[in-house]
Nucleic acid binder design. Sequence first.
DNA 1: TTGAAAGCGCTAACAG
DNA 2: CTGTTAGCGCTTTCAA
Lengths: 347, 347
Amino acid sequence: MTDDSIDRPSRGRATGRVTMADVAALSGVSAITVSRALRHPDKVSPETRAKVQAAIDTLGYVPDLVAGSLASNQSHIVAAVVPTIGGTIFVDTVKGMADALREQGYQLLLGDSGYSLVEEAALVDAFLGRRPNGLILTGVHHEPSVRTRLAAAKVPVVEVWDVSDRPIDMVVGFSNFRAGYEMTAHLARRGYRKIGFAAGLTFGDQRSTERRRGYRTALEEFDLGPERALEVPEAAEFGRGREALVALLARYPDIDAAFFSSDVLAVGALFECQRRGWPVPDRIAIAGFGDFGIAAETIPALTTVRIPGREIGQRAAGMLLDRFAGGGAEPGTVLDLGFEVVARASA
Amino acid sequence: MTDDSIDRPSRGRATGRVTMADVAALSGVSAITVSRALRHPDKVSPETRAKVQAAIDTLGYVPDLVAGSLASNQSHIVAAVVPTIGGTIFVDTVKGMADALREQGYQLLLGDSGYSLVEEAALVDAFLGRRPNGLILTGVHHEPSVRTRLAAAKVPVVEVWDVSDRPIDMVVGFSNFRAGYEMTAHLARRGYRKIGFAAGLTFGDQRSTERRRGYRTALEEFDLGPERALEVPEAAEFGRGREALVALLARYPDIDAAFFSSDVLAVGALFECQRRGWPVPDRIAIAGFGDFGIAAETIPALTTVRIPGREIGQRAAGMLLDRFAGGGAEPGTVLDLGFEVVARASA
DNA sequence: TTGAAAGCGCTAACAG
DNA sequence: CTGTTAGCGCTTTCAA
């Protein structure tokens, strides 16, 4: 007789993995007790707990969260879609989310939509299959299918980085419209009359468009004539900021101030001024958006809009965690965290 | 009789979820046929496929990847740990990985170790429970437990951003030692004799230490005396670059060049020079590391070391995908992608 | 405090 | 090309 048939399981697909059953066998208890020792230690006697822990250590057992998720319908995953993972903008938000979630034992599944709503919808579909306990979306504009899918999945959702009249579920952010308005108003109050505006196409998303609307509204209110605005191809590069300023000046030679949709662009513009030997803000004022780390360091330091990026992430995660705990905000809740115009030397 | 007992399943935990069985029922086939229509469409007749697809659409069915993973032992997840998700440095690598993986239907589970090896080990443990098909780690130095765990899990692993004599499995990166050496040699050849070096503590990881070793070795070889080096607390901020230059000058007033462990630091130093009105490189030469977007735009443009960050990510993902496909590189393979000293105006 | 049985939703294996 | 059966490893429900 051959002994290779003795301990080979009759049929199943042996995976070589150390399972809870192995731990149970070694510690002389049942599988469910091992599970409880792990999940609800207080419901197991200290001695049992110790035996189980010893077995876990000697076997190097790692609980299988996939199986656990299936059985408990609890994945401990939160999925998030951001427009870009590169670029300074959303990094704080992502870190805020990830940190808050990890503290409570949740993991972040992150997706990068490349500022495309279609891609966002695709990611949502892909993520939903992982049974996330919650979902975070950037912005408040989405493909129609996204709303349907999310409603069907009955997953708590937080939309971030904007405010909305018609939330999918919860929203935490600030008004991009008002941010654009306030910076423009700030420039107007400082005495600038011919204010240009430049946005990058990657920022040519809904939020950037909202800021531009705010800019335009302020222009009207302060009676500063028609908009002097344009868009540049890609915006996450400093070189584009130089190009943007050049283009803006070519089209609107009379501008005395330029408001950029991102600090990256604004810093690039600052470099261009330095190259030309133009004093800022005397020859032209420069304003940015985001208050990235570099904004405080340039010479002159950059006037910009500070966004509570990290707090947005933390609060979004917190709202989900509250829901998981059975409570949490009502569907329809909108949390406006505001923003701040940071007046520095450049404008 | 009450009718609430009629269509409630006898025991199980109803989740309200649309399952494969629902699709099967509606399309008049069996569950496995639905599975095949989704996973291996060519193994199902076109008519059946159409029926199944119709049912999927009307029901809004989303396949449950958790259940699928459990059954197939195939999670289609690759987990990666990077020292920081913020900061420009690893972003290209992460995007390179994510894009390459997504193209093949894999998702990236990303973790941020905050440059801590202990945290890295914790993340590896947490990730392993998700049954990732592959794992990517930054650097070649890890907690001892990491090697054990990974060996036990039999997961393909790629270490990135350095080279190693003793890979866990596969490695793709470049030699940080040689990068530090070559930049220092470049400065020496340009005639600088008193070369300072500053690294941030968050870059005070093994890779940064390797670069410093390279710097020191070049100093010896070019007979440039003892090292003039120091570390600054945090390095992902431009302000630290100014501080670093100030500290470097305070301690080594005679330096004629400063080599920074990161472009962020170097650009901050450039700002400090601008503030002082010091001409760069005449008064002092400045060199960075990383070739971030801003490096080409500063005035003067920054001399730095270009790292193939995106390619590292792509190749790492590719090596894993090849393994998944049954082939792939031998364990022990080290892919050295090199680097490039980019000589611009600042040094 | 512990255990036995059932099943989460899907796919591998083995027919037909 | 399609279906039946038996799990994947865990946690739920119910019972002791």
